[in-house]
Design a protein around this nucleic acid. Structure first.
Length: 640
RNA sequence: GCCCAUGUAGCUCAGGAGGUAGAGUACUUGCAUGGUAAGCAAGAGGUCACCGGUUCAAAUCCGGUCAUGGGCUCCA
């Protein structure tokens, strides 16, 4: 319970659901007010309590834990203040708190360098030590504009002009530094203890690529140095999980200058990929899907018809065959549509579910490429479902269940978003509303939490997106389920209804893995390269103690091979410690050491990559244990 | 595509104020046949990303291109 006690003995209690973070004094208009930085329903907010004139305020008690947002936000003001001190001509744009830190965007003649970051960091620490009081004051809109114009802060002026009329505008002041800000903030700069600037980046003003590129400085801060150290250590750990590094180290895939954005899969990478594909096929057949395969290159005319020419051309590759124009497919749907049109259908035939592991090419911007997560050619685990309108909800629910089932096999947590009509789209608002509502209804009936991602739908329809997280918390869209009323119209898809008339089917596009490439990238990071046995490219390696036992090793190898286990035999003339180290670095689930004892007893000495030495085992028994693990797809790689 | 940074042996990285390069590891060979995370030794490996300019001389300085990394924008 938080209470403010006034000199006259009366007190004020805060309402339920409000977590008080800190107080800042309001210095405007001689009014005595206390502004409380609080968290209301998870969102930071200023709560203003108007008190009696001339009354003194004392906060008797407040929550000791400072909301991270507020903490980081004040840090970003300190950053801006430091930059202003060191580079006086700099103009301020925006500087919010973000997850694990904050940034501030600057417009400066001076190009910030890495060395500057160190200088700025020093200055920030100075500001912290100065223990500047953070004061809030408010102005009417015109006064606010005037103040910012005087200071030459044209970006701030632009921000204020966009604020609604009639609202008073709050500023925060610390020492000689004033910034437009909704707050709340810490009461003093001294509350920030461990300041660290992380990186420099470019960012467009207001996130629009037509605007000026500003200089963004990313940083983080903590109450204690120890927390900062822990955070930096976590970042280091995360780097070790980077799929680009592990992919190279584990010999799974490589990227080459000769094909930017076009990944090369190595034999071990293909093992994982093929296992995923096998799993994918098996689960699809179980759920009534058929599999199709459509060409990579199709006549350009088709892409005019589908709308891709108008809405997706920038991302497409083109080629010529016998003088005619062709396009390399960026999506698989037109192929599925042509298959649909090759037949006549009755309403009794629905739904159709056609899966396709479809190789698509998209010309992504060079700066967007990122390991396996963002590439220029990738295989979508696509499917196109054709259905009657009354089947839509059930089909969508089926896709949601299917997605959940597959993600659970890997132990993934995921986030769901509903993406709505983008600016560049086809079809009427009514069609979009209907499609969006159908998706929403399916999600609601499944009781799935989701957020709305305004304007992020495909050009032909809204979509449900499934996002998975990578090693450092970036999330990537993998699964997607898109409802499409457009393609069936454009391609004049029909079926014959009960009434003998032609009707229009509804189409759903969906992926679960998203793309094999991205999904494998996520998997590598998820398991930190230590794949569960069922996915591991090499499941077991036999390590003879010396050359003398290679022959016995061969025998064991055969036994494992016959059981369908991916096994290797290391016959090199190295010491066993060396072989173990290599197998460990390669994150092979099981090592079988064979020497004199094992030959004598007809056994193997098993070592688990995570648990260590498991002792001598009967070969047949151990094979059974591994086979069982593979069958049940146990995710058995904790911190290996 | 835009901003910033980076590009030296298969990998991880030193070095170089202009005079054509070095370590560790990996690789090859020899010795060693060793019981749970690196045995010893020798050898081979590089147009210092690419193209152009300045210079007697460029891996080094300058310009451009390409690629990579972090962001922005865009997306599975």
């Amino acid at each position: 319970m938080i209470k403010i006690t006034l000199p006259d003995g009366s007190s004020r209690e805060y309402e339920k659901g409000v977590k008080v973070i800190d107080v800042a004094k309001d210095i405007s208009e001689g009014l005595a007010r206390v502004v409380v930085g609080a968290v209301v329903n998870g969102k930071p907010r200023d709560l203003t309590y108007q008190l009696h004139e001339n009354s003194e305020v004392e906060l008797v008690k407040f929550e000791s834990e400072v909301g991270e947002d507020i903490f980081r936000h004040t840090s970003s003001h300190i950053l801006a203040q430091a930059v202003k001190r060191l580079f006086p001509g700099t103009k301020l744009a925006i500087g919010p708190a973000i997850e694990n830190g904050y940034y501030y965007d600057f417009d400066s003649e001076h190009k910030f360098t890495e060395e500057d970051l160190e200088k700025i960091e020093k200055e920030m620490n100075k500001i912290v030590k100065e223990d500047l009081e953070v004061e809030r004051f408010t102005l009417e809109k015109d006064e606010a504009i005037k103040l910012m114009e005087e200071k030459g802060e044209n970006y701030k002026v632009e921000l204020i002009k966009d604020l609604p009329e009639g609202e008073t505008i709050s500023f925060y002041k610390q020492g000689d530094f004033v910034d437009l800000c909704a707050g709340p903030h810490l009461p003093s700069t001294k509350k920030v203890k461990a300041v660290k600037l992380l990186s420099l980046a470019g960012a467009y003003w207001r996130g629009d690529e037509n605007n000026k590129m500003l200089q963004r400085i990313y940083g983080t801060s903590f109450e204690k140095n120890k927390q900062l150290k822990e955070y930096l250590k976590r970042l280091e750990e995360a780097k070790k999980r980077d799929h680009r590094k592990l992919g190279k180290e584990l010999d799974l895939f490589t990227m080459h200058e000769e094909g930017p954005g076009f990944p090369f899969f190595h034999p071990k990478g293909m093992v994982i990929r093929n296992i995923l594909e096998d799993l994918w096929r098996k689960e699809h057949y179980k759920r009534g899907y058929g599999e199709v395969k459509t060409p990579i290159i199709l006549n350009e005319e088709l892409w005019h018809k589908s709308g891709h020419w108008d809405h997706y051309q920038e991302n497409m590759y083109f080629t010529k065959i016998d003088g005619a124009d062709y396009a390399i497919k960026p999506m698989n749907c037109p192929g599925a549509l042509l298959i649909y049109k090759s037949n006549m259908y009755s309403y009794r035939d629905f739904p159709f579910r056609w899966g396709e592991l479809g190789l698509v090419h998209r010309h992504e911007m060079s700066g967007a490429l990122h390991g396996l997560m963002r590439v220029r050619n990738f295989t979508q685990d696509d499917a196109h479902l054709f259905m009657l309108e009354e089947q839509v909800k059930d089909e969508i629910k089926g896709v949601i269940d299917f997605t959940d089932y597959l993600y659970n096999i890997f132990g993934f947590k995921y986030r769901v978003e509903l993406s709505t009509k983008p600016e560049d789209s086809m079809g009427t608002q009514a069609e979009w509303d209907l499609a969006t509502d159908s998706l929403r209804a399916a999600l609601e009936e499944k009781n799935i939490e989701f957020r709305i991602n305004e304007g992020d739908g495909a050009f032909y329809g809204p979509k449900i997106d499934f996002h998975l997280e990578d090693a450092i918390g970036r999330t990537w869209q993998c699964g997607t389920c898109q409802l499409d009323f457009q393609m069936p119209q454009r391609f004049d898809l029909t079926y014959v209804g009960k009434d003998g008339e032609k009707h229009r089917p509804v189409m759903v596009h969906r992926t679960i893995f998203g793309s094999m490439e991205r999904f494998i990238g996520i998997l590598i990071e998820h398991y930190a390269g230590a794949f569960p046995t069922w996915l591991a490219p090499v499941q077991a390696r036999i390590l003879p103690i010396s050359d003398k036992f290679n022959e016995y090793g061969e025998k064991i190898k055969k036994q494992f091979e016959e059981a369908g286990i991916r096994v290797e035999l290391d016959t090199r003339s190295e010491k066993v410690g060396y072989k173990i180290r290599e197998a460990q670095v390669e994150k092979i689930p099981y090592m079988m050491i064979v020497g004199e004892n094992e030959v004598k007893n007809g056994t193997i000495a098993v070592r688990d990559r995570a648990e260590g030495d498991l002792g001598e085992k009967n070969t047949e028994d151990f094979i059974k244990i591994i086979k069982e693990k593979i069958k049940t797809k146990v995710n058995d790689s904790p911190n290996a």
